[in-house]
């Protein structure tokens, strides 16, 4: 059961790593807002040997996320970005109902474009400060913590573009990054998001995304610190996502995505959907 607690937590944490249009420039003096609703359900987990098990006592973890990701183009090469998440987690089994909700890790940062090449492709470096807007009460919440409860930083290299010759007008957004939390036990996380998209017509687009995360800590998942001992720091997973979007107005498009965890180690296996709008002005 203890293992299950560890497994559940990190799923909610990682749900809000998704950022639409992250690799493409916002534009000088313009805003991008991406309000998002995300629903995730998990009822099983992978153990250390990548073997899948059901949660004990018919356990079920549900996470709802409502947040906004946004950015402002300071100039053509520099953007201010932010993300404010509100999270509601609930764990239930035959003996327990444990809800927890609140503002999660707020992110603020800067994105700098190292090169725009021919302006159909963009190479960017993003630095983000992770600020927890909650404190972990592990005596109350065993399964539904909102995050690591520690400050952190993230550095991400992005390469995004639109193909002009082969597979004309298809687009891609490739990201690799590292995230470090300022706690004795870390963890350090490497992540990647690989997106490939196709325009269906002038209004509709569809894309597929593969997301991978590997998290590690010098202390593993064992710590003398009680709070630290309840969180999952050693895990990895791979998630596949399909999304479709339609241009609703000249400045707004609406997207729906569905996703599922396909591989993992010491982490919950779940699936979910998200609805988000991409608003530019």
């Amino acid at each position: 059961m203890k293992k299950n607690k560890l497994i559940l937590f990190c799923i909610a944490l990682l749900l809000f790593t998704q950022q639409a249009n992250a690799g493409f420039p916002i534009g000088k003096g313009r805003w991008l807002l991406v309000p998002t609703f995300n629903h995730y359900v998990a009822s099983s987990y992978w153990d250390d040997n990548r073997t899948l098990h059901s949660f004990d006592k018919s356990g079920r973890f549900v996470s709802n996320y409502l947040g906004v990701y946004g950015g402002y183009g300071i100039n053509r090469d520099l953007e201010f970005i932010f993300k404010v998440p509100f999270i509601s987690n609930t764990y239930t089994d035959t003996t327990l109902i444990e809800p927890n909700s609140g503002i999660g890790d707020v992110n603020i940062g800067l994105c700098y474009y190292l090169s725009h090449y021919d302006y159909f492709r963009h190479l960017s470096l993003t630095g983000t400060l992770i600020i927890p807007f909650y404190s972990n009460q592990t005596d109350v919440y065993k399964h539904t913590l909102l995050g690591y409860g520690a400050m952190g930083i993230e550095a991400k290299l992005g390469y995004a573009g639109t193909n002009q010759k082969v597979l004309k007008k298809t687009f891609y957004d490739l990201e690799v990054g590292v995230r470090q939390y300022f706690a004795t036990e870390g963890p350090t996380q490497l992540f990647t998001n690989l997106t490939f998209g196709v325009p269906i017509d002038e209004s509709w687009k569809a894309c597929a995304t593969l997301r991978g995360v590997t998290s590690s800590s010098p202390y593993g998942n064992i710590s003398s610190n009680f709070v630290a001992s309840t969180v999952n720091r050693e895990y990895d997973y791979l998630r596949f996502e399909l999304a479709a979007g339609v241009k609703a107005t000249r400045s707004t498009s609406i997207w729906l995505s569905v996703y599922t965890d396909i591989l993992g180690k010491h982490i919950g296996k779940g699936s979910g959907y998200s609805i988000f709008a991409v608003i530019k002005f």
Binding site: P25, H116, D118, Y119, F120
Partner: peptide, 11 residues
């Protein structure tokens, strides 16, 4: 002109 011009033109 090359793609650099046409790409930037959109921006």
């Amino acid at each position: 002109l090359d793609n650099k011009f046409y790409g930037f033109q959109g921006t």
